[in-house]
């Protein structure tokens, strides 16, 4: 099987995730879409790792996971805080930075 299919799949997942970020308004779902994009990247990294025959790609994917975990923790904390004060998790409602 041609390794390029894994990359096609990664690109497809990434694009779907990006479209989700643009479409959804629930901050939590937006976050999930971002996670989806990160996972797509990880898939590409892992595929590259196998393609080139070394483990560096896997290391990068590993680091991505760690950073994603940190990001999720902080991001969800922010969402919880926003929800507490504004009683909504819609990203459209947090538009006060415009002024």
């Amino acid at each position: 099987m041609n390794p390029v299919y894994y990359l096609y799949l990664a690109a497809l997942l990434f694009t779907i995730g990006a479209a989700g970020v643009l479409i959804r308004r629930n901050a939590i779902v937006v976050f999930m879409c971002i996670e989806l994009m990160l996972n797509a990247c990880n898939l590409a990294f892992v595929t590259f790792s196998r393609l080139h025959g070394n483990l560096d790609g896997q290391i990068i994917a590993f680091f991505t996971m760690v950073v994603a975990a940190a990001e999720v923790v902080v991001g969800l904390a922010i969402i919880v805080t926003i929800f507490r004060t504004r009683h909504t998790a819609s990203v459209d409602d947090a538009s006060l930075m415009k002024l």
């Binding site: 970020v21 643009l22 308004r25 990203v91 459209d92 538009s95």
Partner: peptide, 14 residues
Amino acid sequence: LQSGFVRSYAVQML
């Protein structure tokens, strides 16, 4: 362009 909506910014970023 600066509408204050995060998703508009995301569109621009993409």
